[in-house]
Simulated scan of single mutants.
Amino acid sequence: MTVFETARPDPIRIMLVDDQALLRVGFRMVLEAEDDLRVVAEASDGAQAIALAASVCPQVILMDVRMPGLDGIEATRQIMAAQPNTRIIILTTFDLDEYAFGGLRAGASGFLLKNAEPGELITAIRTVVSGEASVSPRVTRRLLDLFGTQLPQVDAPDAGTGTALAALTDRETEVFLAIAEGLSNTELAERFFLSESTVKTHVGRILHKLGLRDRVQAVILAYEQGLVGR
């Protein structure tokens, strides 16, 4: 019998950003115990994070928000502007936190509590790399309800946003607005009497037409465009 070794995919490249060295050590130990994860850089503040992200090009950044100097929200905004394919997960102390929401509006793909279980951390990283958000639209909607009117407005939407919204079909518009309510794929299927596979097709087309990375961005766009209540 002959056994051929299969090539393993390259590990996911991760950067840790937190001003607490002990926390970075803990995260590194958890992550590097996994064959498909590798920590390639660490930073202790937002300015360091921006410089390192440009030089090492991590796929995923675990980003603290409360740091001296440049905070994690502004660092997230600048990194996403320069490297839009990077996935950022905000690290926060509280579940429903204005800093977590600020990070999502700045372009993060999700947030995690700092005391999350190791399995949650690992799953979140793999989830955002796969192209999904690690926080549900429903949680995003709750954050909007709690903090949306308390935070400064983000930059004005691109001039093409209105045109892109107008390009949605009637059904896609219905699905888009339902996503903005925080409905899951199962709930969308039930509301519109569709199969979940058809719902996924609609969601994929909506995100593509609007130039969005994930459903969380769809919720935030609908809010910023005034399509859901402030």
Rank of each mutant, 00 (worst) to 15 (best):
M1K: 09
V3K: 14
E5Y: 09
A7R: 14
A7L: 15
M15Y: 05
M15D: 03
L16P: 06
D19K: 04
Q20S: 08
A21F: 02
L23A: 12
L23Y: 05
M29P: 01
M29R: 09
L31D: 01
E32I: 13
A33M: 11
E34Y: 08
D35A: 14
L37K: 06
V40H: 04
A41I: 08
G46M: 12
G46T: 10
G46V: 03
Q48A: 15
L52H: 07
S55Y: 01
S55Q: 12
V56F: 10
P58T: 01
Q59W: 09
Q59H: 13
V65G: 03
P68A: 00
G69M: 06
G69K: 01
D71G: 04
G72C: 04
E74A: 11
T76F: 09
Q78A: 04
I79T: 06
A82M: 15
Q83E: 00
P84K: 06
N85R: 11
R87Q: 15
R87E: 13
I90H: 00
I90S: 00
T92D: 10
T93M: 11
T93Q: 09
F94P: 00
Y99F: 09
A100I: 05
F101R: 06
F101E: 08
G102S: 08
G102L: 05
G103N: 01
R105M: 12
R105F: 04
S109K: 06
F111M: 07
F111Q: 03
L112M: 03
K114I: 01
E117S: 11
L121R: 09
R126V: 04
V129R: 05
S130I: 13
E132A: 14
E132Y: 11
S134P: 00
S136D: 12
V139P: 01
R142S: 11
D145H: 04
G148A: 03
L151G: 08
L151E: 13
P152Q: 00
A156K: 15
T161F: 00
T163L: 14
A164C: 07
T169Q: 10
T169D: 09
D170A: 14
E172Q: 14
T173G: 13
E174S: 12
V175S: 02
V175F: 02
F176L: 02
A180K: 03
A180F: 06
S184N: 12
S184Y: 09
T186W: 08
E187S: 08
E187Q: 14
L188C: 11
R191G: 06
F193A: 14
L194N: 02
E196V: 12
V199M: 11
T201K: 11
H202P: 02
V203D: 00
L207I: 15
H208N: 15
L210G: 07
L212H: 08
L212F: 10
R213N: 14
D214P: 10
R215G: 00
R215Q: 15
V216H: 01
A218P: 09
V219Y: 00
L221Q: 11
Y223R: 13
L227V: 07
V228P: 09
G229D: 11
R230W: 07
